[in-house]
Write a protein that binds this DNA or RNA. Sequence first.
DNA 1: TTTATATATGAATATGTGCTCATATATGTT
DNA 2: AACATATATGAGCACATATTCATATATAAA
Lengths: 104, 104
Amino acid sequence: MTENNKKYEQLDEETLFIVSQTFKALSDPTRIRILHLLGENECSVSEIAEQLSLMQSTVSHQLRFLKNLRLVKFRRSGTTLFYSIDDEHVMTLLHQSIHHARHD
Amino acid sequence: MTENNKKYEQLDEETLFIVSQTFKALSDPTRIRILHLLGENECSVSEIAEQLSLMQSTVSHQLRFLKNLRLVKFRRSGTTLFYSIDDEHVMTLLHQSIHHARHD
DNA sequence: TTTATATATGAATATGTGCTCATATATGTT
DNA sequence: AACATATATGAGCACATATTCATATATAAA
Protein backbone atom coordinates (compact mmCIF):
# COMPACT_ATOMS: atom_id res chain seq x y z
CA MET A 1 0.00 0.00 0.00
CA THR A 2 2.62 2.55 -0.95
CA GLU A 3 0.57 3.86 -3.88
CA ASN A 4 -1.11 7.20 -3.85
CA ASN A 5 -4.79 6.33 -4.01
CA LYS A 6 -6.05 9.87 -4.21
CA LYS A 7 -7.43 10.30 -7.74
CA TYR A 8 -6.24 13.53 -9.32
CA GLU A 9 -8.95 16.20 -9.61
CA GLN A 10 -8.75 17.85 -13.00
CA LEU A 11 -9.37 21.57 -13.24
CA ASP A 12 -12.75 22.14 -14.89
CA GLU A 13 -12.92 23.93 -18.24
CA GLU A 14 -14.50 27.09 -16.90
CA THR A 15 -12.00 27.60 -14.11
CA LEU A 16 -9.18 26.93 -16.53
CA PHE A 17 -10.56 29.54 -18.91
CA ILE A 18 -11.03 32.23 -16.28
CA VAL A 19 -7.62 31.64 -14.74
CA SER A 20 -5.78 31.66 -18.06
CA GLN A 21 -7.61 34.81 -19.17
CA THR A 22 -6.74 36.57 -15.95
CA PHE A 23 -3.06 35.78 -16.24
CA LYS A 24 -3.08 36.63 -19.95
CA ALA A 25 -4.22 40.12 -19.03
CA LEU A 26 -1.20 40.40 -16.76
CA SER A 27 1.28 38.89 -19.20
CA ASP A 28 1.77 41.92 -21.42
CA PRO A 29 4.17 44.71 -20.35
CA THR A 30 1.94 47.46 -21.72
CA ARG A 31 -1.09 46.23 -19.82
CA ILE A 32 0.98 45.80 -16.66
CA ARG A 33 2.18 49.39 -16.95
CA ILE A 34 -1.36 50.68 -17.49
CA LEU A 35 -2.76 48.71 -14.54
CA HIS A 36 0.11 49.76 -12.31
CA LEU A 37 -0.43 53.42 -13.21
CA LEU A 38 -4.18 53.17 -12.61
CA GLY A 39 -3.41 51.52 -9.28
CA GLU A 40 -1.90 54.85 -8.21
CA ASN A 41 -4.41 57.23 -9.78
CA GLU A 42 -7.53 57.39 -11.85
CA CYS A 43 -6.35 58.62 -15.29
CA SER A 44 -7.75 59.77 -18.59
CA VAL A 45 -6.75 57.97 -21.77
CA SER A 46 -4.48 60.80 -22.86
CA GLU A 47 -2.85 61.01 -19.43
CA ILE A 48 -2.04 57.32 -19.62
CA ALA A 49 -0.61 57.74 -23.11
CA GLU A 50 1.55 60.66 -22.01
CA GLN A 51 2.79 59.15 -18.74
CA LEU A 52 3.73 55.88 -20.42
CA SER A 53 4.82 57.27 -23.80
CA LEU A 54 2.30 55.21 -25.72
CA MET A 55 0.15 56.01 -28.74
CA GLN A 56 -3.39 57.02 -27.85
CA SER A 57 -4.61 54.22 -30.07
CA THR A 58 -2.51 51.63 -28.28
CA VAL A 59 -3.90 52.76 -24.94
CA SER A 60 -7.49 52.64 -26.18
CA HIS A 61 -7.07 49.14 -27.56
CA GLN A 62 -5.59 47.83 -24.32
CA LEU A 63 -8.21 49.59 -22.22
CA ARG A 64 -10.90 47.87 -24.24
CA PHE A 65 -9.23 44.55 -23.51
CA LEU A 66 -9.04 45.31 -19.79
CA LYS A 67 -12.58 46.67 -19.72
CA ASN A 68 -13.93 43.49 -21.36
CA LEU A 69 -12.37 41.48 -18.54
CA ARG A 70 -13.81 44.00 -16.04
CA LEU A 71 -10.37 44.80 -14.69
CA VAL A 72 -10.93 48.53 -15.26
CA LYS A 73 -13.94 50.84 -15.35
CA PHE A 74 -14.41 54.46 -16.42
CA ARG A 75 -16.45 57.57 -15.75
CA ARG A 76 -17.11 60.30 -18.28
CA SER A 77 -16.46 63.98 -17.74
CA GLY A 78 -17.26 65.89 -20.90
CA THR A 79 -15.22 64.36 -23.71
CA THR A 80 -12.73 62.93 -21.27
CA LEU A 81 -12.95 59.38 -19.93
CA PHE A 82 -11.31 58.66 -16.59
CA TYR A 83 -10.29 55.05 -16.15
CA SER A 84 -9.70 53.30 -12.85
CA ILE A 85 -9.18 49.85 -11.38
CA ASP A 86 -12.25 47.63 -11.10
CA ASP A 87 -10.73 44.37 -9.78
CA GLU A 88 -8.78 44.56 -6.56
CA HIS A 89 -8.08 40.84 -6.58
CA VAL A 90 -6.15 41.06 -9.83
CA MET A 91 -4.26 44.07 -8.50
CA THR A 92 -3.30 41.98 -5.49
CA LEU A 93 -1.85 39.33 -7.80
CA LEU A 94 0.05 42.04 -9.70
CA HIS A 95 1.46 43.69 -6.59
CA GLN A 96 2.52 40.36 -5.11
CA SER A 97 4.36 39.51 -8.30
CA ILE A 98 6.06 42.90 -8.48
CA HIS A 99 7.10 42.62 -4.86
CA HIS A 100 8.47 39.14 -5.44
CA ALA A 101 10.33 40.14 -8.62
CA ARG A 102 12.06 42.95 -6.76
CA HIS A 103 13.06 40.91 -3.74
CA ASP A 104 14.95 38.03 -5.26
CA MET B 1 -3.34 73.10 -4.67
CA THR B 2 -5.75 70.42 -5.78
CA GLU B 3 -3.12 68.72 -7.96
CA ASN B 4 -1.54 65.43 -7.09
CA ASN B 5 2.10 66.30 -6.59
CA LYS B 6 3.32 62.76 -6.11
CA LYS B 7 5.36 61.95 -9.19
CA TYR B 8 4.48 58.52 -10.63
CA GLU B 9 7.17 55.87 -10.17
CA GLN B 10 7.55 53.88 -13.37
CA LEU B 11 8.15 50.17 -13.14
CA ASP B 12 11.74 49.47 -14.12
CA GLU B 13 12.47 47.36 -17.19
CA GLU B 14 13.76 44.36 -15.31
CA THR B 15 10.81 44.11 -12.94
CA LEU B 16 8.45 44.53 -15.87
CA PHE B 17 10.19 41.72 -17.71
CA ILE B 18 10.16 39.28 -14.79
CA VAL B 19 6.54 40.00 -13.92
CA SER B 20 5.31 39.66 -17.49
CA GLN B 21 7.26 36.42 -17.97
CA THR B 22 5.82 34.99 -14.79
CA PHE B 23 2.26 35.74 -15.79
CA LYS B 24 2.90 34.51 -19.32
CA ALA B 25 3.83 31.13 -17.87
CA LEU B 26 0.46 31.05 -16.14
CA SER B 27 -1.55 32.31 -19.11
CA ASP B 28 -1.67 29.05 -21.06
CA PRO B 29 -4.23 26.36 -20.16
CA THR B 30 -1.80 23.52 -20.86
CA ARG B 31 0.87 24.96 -18.58
CA ILE B 32 -1.71 25.67 -15.88
CA ARG B 33 -2.84 22.04 -16.02
CA ILE B 34 0.74 20.77 -15.82
CA LEU B 35 1.61 23.02 -12.88
CA HIS B 36 -1.61 22.15 -11.09
CA LEU B 37 -0.93 18.43 -11.53
CA LEU B 38 2.67 18.79 -10.31
CA GLY B 39 1.32 20.73 -7.35
CA GLU B 40 -0.33 17.49 -6.24
CA ASN B 41 2.43 15.02 -7.12
CA GLU B 42 5.85 14.70 -8.59
CA CYS B 43 5.28 13.15 -12.05
CA SER B 44 7.23 11.70 -14.94
CA VAL B 45 6.80 13.18 -18.41
CA SER B 46 4.74 10.23 -19.60
CA GLU B 47 2.54 10.32 -16.49
CA ILE B 48 1.78 13.96 -17.17
CA ALA B 49 0.98 13.18 -20.79
CA GLU B 50 -1.34 10.35 -19.80
CA GLN B 51 -3.12 12.14 -16.96
CA LEU B 52 -3.76 15.22 -19.06
CA SER B 53 -4.25 13.50 -22.44
CA LEU B 54 -1.44 15.43 -24.08
CA MET B 55 1.19 14.39 -26.61
CA GLN B 56 4.54 13.53 -25.05
CA SER B 57 6.12 16.13 -27.28
CA THR B 58 3.73 18.82 -26.12
CA VAL B 59 4.52 18.04 -22.49
CA SER B 60 8.27 18.09 -23.10
CA HIS B 61 8.11 21.45 -24.86
CA GLN B 62 6.07 23.01 -22.06
CA LEU B 63 8.30 21.50 -19.39
CA ARG B 64 11.32 23.07 -21.07
CA PHE B 65 9.52 26.42 -20.97
CA LEU B 66 8.70 25.99 -17.27
CA LYS B 67 12.18 24.73 -16.48
CA ASN B 68 13.79 27.74 -18.15
CA LEU B 69 11.77 29.98 -15.84
CA ARG B 70 12.77 27.74 -12.91
CA LEU B 71 9.15 27.02 -12.10
CA VAL B 72 9.80 23.26 -12.19
CA LYS B 73 12.78 21.01 -11.56
CA PHE B 74 13.42 17.31 -12.17
CA ARG B 75 15.32 14.32 -10.88
CA ARG B 76 16.42 11.40 -12.99
CA SER B 77 15.69 7.76 -12.24
CA GLY B 78 17.00 5.59 -15.04
CA THR B 79 15.49 6.84 -18.26
CA THR B 80 12.61 8.41 -16.44
CA LEU B 81 12.59 12.06 -15.39
CA PHE B 82 10.41 13.06 -12.48
CA TYR B 83 9.32 16.68 -12.56
CA SER B 84 8.16 18.71 -9.59
CA ILE B 85 7.39 22.29 -8.57
CA ASP B 86 10.36 24.58 -7.99
CA ASP B 87 8.65 27.91 -7.27
CA GLU B 88 6.15 28.00 -4.45
CA HIS B 89 5.51 31.68 -4.93
CA VAL B 90 4.15 31.14 -8.44
CA MET B 91 2.05 28.24 -7.16
CA THR B 92 0.59 30.60 -4.59
CA LEU B 93 -0.42 32.99 -7.36
CA LEU B 94 -1.98 30.10 -9.27
CA HIS B 95 -3.91 28.75 -6.30
CA GLN B 96 -5.18 32.20 -5.38
CA SER B 97 -6.43 32.71 -8.90
CA ILE B 98 -8.10 29.29 -9.04
CA HIS B 99 -9.76 29.92 -5.71
CA HIS B 100 -10.98 33.31 -6.85
CA ALA B 101 -12.25 31.98 -10.18
CA ARG B 102 -14.31 29.34 -8.39
CA HIS B 103 -15.84 31.65 -5.84
CA ASP B 104 -17.39 34.39 -7.97
C1' DT C 1 -24.12 74.17 -37.54
C1' DT C 2 -19.32 74.40 -37.69
C1' DT C 3 -15.19 73.47 -35.29
C1' DA C 4 -12.20 71.49 -31.79
C1' DT C 5 -10.92 67.90 -28.68
C1' DA C 6 -10.98 63.23 -26.67
C1' DT C 7 -11.58 58.64 -27.46
C1' DA C 8 -12.79 54.39 -30.11
C1' DT C 9 -12.39 51.35 -33.86
C1' DG C 10 -11.15 48.67 -38.20
C1' DA C 11 -7.61 47.09 -41.25
C1' DA C 12 -3.04 45.85 -42.11
C1' DT C 13 1.18 44.06 -40.58
C1' DA C 14 4.75 41.99 -37.95
C1' DT C 15 5.76 39.05 -34.42
C1' DG C 16 4.84 35.49 -31.03
C1' DT C 17 2.87 31.04 -29.55
C1' DG C 18 1.41 26.18 -29.17
C1' DC C 19 0.86 21.98 -31.33
C1' DT C 20 2.26 18.02 -34.16
C1' DC C 21 5.37 15.15 -36.77
C1' DA C 22 9.65 13.19 -37.37
C1' DT C 23 13.79 12.29 -35.39
C1' DA C 24 17.64 12.72 -32.13
C1' DT C 25 19.59 11.68 -27.63
C1' DA C 26 20.20 9.27 -23.35
C1' DT C 27 19.93 5.46 -20.33
C1' DG C 28 19.33 0.64 -19.41
C1' DT C 29 19.10 -4.29 -20.79
C1' DT C 30 20.38 -8.42 -23.23
C1' DA D 1 26.93 -4.02 -29.88
C1' DA D 2 22.02 -4.19 -30.69
C1' DC D 3 17.71 -3.07 -28.98
C1' DA D 4 14.02 -0.99 -26.12
C1' DT D 5 12.18 2.80 -23.60
C1' DA D 6 11.82 7.60 -22.00
C1' DT D 7 12.52 12.11 -23.09
C1' DA D 8 14.16 16.14 -25.86
C1' DT D 9 14.39 18.84 -29.88
C1' DG D 10 13.88 21.15 -34.52
C1' DA D 11 10.92 22.34 -38.37
C1' DG D 12 6.61 23.61 -40.10
C1' DC D 13 2.09 25.27 -39.68
C1' DA D 14 -2.01 27.52 -37.99
C1' DC D 15 -3.50 30.83 -35.10
C1' DA D 16 -3.22 34.63 -31.73
C1' DT D 17 -1.51 39.17 -30.38
C1' DA D 18 0.30 44.03 -30.16
C1' DT D 19 1.06 47.99 -32.56
C1' DT D 20 0.30 51.57 -35.98
C1' DC D 21 -2.24 54.30 -39.33
C1' DA D 22 -6.30 56.25 -40.85
C1' DT D 23 -10.67 57.39 -39.71
C1' DA D 24 -15.05 57.28 -37.18
C1' DT D 25 -17.72 58.74 -33.19
C1' DA D 26 -18.99 61.56 -29.28
C1' DT D 27 -19.22 65.63 -26.58
C1' DA D 28 -18.62 70.50 -25.98
C1' DA D 29 -17.96 75.27 -27.44
C1' DA D 30 -18.55 79.11 -30.52
